[in-house]
């Protein structure tokens, strides 16, 4: 999807606040949102569908509202889309249907233990042989899906070199449609001088992890 979330190399966003306090949550509601997100969600959602719902937020809202606010809106929108909430419920915050049986609470120790099981492995086998090998020169595709994709605009059409083959991982462009299909994944190195006309140092390297169908032989 070509929207404002695809930020790599875009200009005009100003300085970085390097002095912000080093705390996990600046406001209580941010912690609540983190906690909600750690224990909610629907089994039909995939990580890439969730990302697509977030990147489909109104562009002005995406750029101007606080970060965890976008998680709240993403979650509300995804629940409405899945039919778990009605739009009226999402807007009012009031349940208008029969409730499920509430889950039992967990302790902090149980949360820490549960977190160890959130190391989801995204490898998905494919019968296809890898098209590229380490050292190959490639060109990233010029065009990309209007739905979800993980091929950022700033490398499209640019030349790079394959540096690692990571085996076959779930392909996000399909996973965002709820379809799990493995595709070969590579780390690809792009020289700064090949990406930016007036770069800071032409030999600096930008690495991206890109799926095979994003790449063509150079």
């Amino acid at each position: 999807m070509d929207s404002v979330h695809d930020l790599g190399g875009k200009q005009g966003y100003g300085a970085i606040d390097v002095d912000e306090p080093e705390v996990p949550f600046k406001h209580e509601w941010e912690g609540r949102m983190w906690g909600i997100s750690s224990c909610s969600g629907s089994s039909d959602w995939t990580i890439d569908w969730w990302r697509h719902v977030r990147e489909a937020i109104d562009p002005v809202d995406y750029l101007t509202r606080p970060y965890f606010d976008s998680w709240a809106q993403t979650e509300l929108a995804a629940y409405v889309d899945s039919g778990v909430f009605t739009l009226e419920e999402a807007i009012s915050g009031k349940c208008q249907s029969e409730a499920f049986k509430a889950p039992s609470p967990i302790s902090v120790d149980e949360a820490v233990a549960k977190d160890r099981k959130r190391d989801t492995n995204f490898e998905v086998a494919t019968t296809k042989a890898p098209k590229f090998t380490v050292g190959d020169s490639i060109v990233a595709a010029v065009t990309a899906s209007s739905h979800h994709t993980r091929l950022p605009a700033y490398v499209r059409g640019k030349a790079g070199t394959v540096t690692t083959h990571h085996g076959s991982h779930s392909f996000p462009d399909l996973n965002a449609h709820g379809i799990e299909e493995g595709q070969h994944l590579y780390s690809v190195a792009f020289k700064a001088g090949d990406l930016w006309l007036d770069c800071e140092n032409a030999d600096d390297v930008i690495y991206l992890d890109l799926w095979e169908s994003y790449l063509e032989p150079a």
Binding site: G35, S97, A99, F100, A102, P103, S104
Partner: peptide, 8 residues
């Protein structure tokens, strides 16, 4: 809705 627990 009974989907999450506040203590969790």
């Amino acid at each position: 809705k009974g989907l999450v627990n506040s203590e969790t």
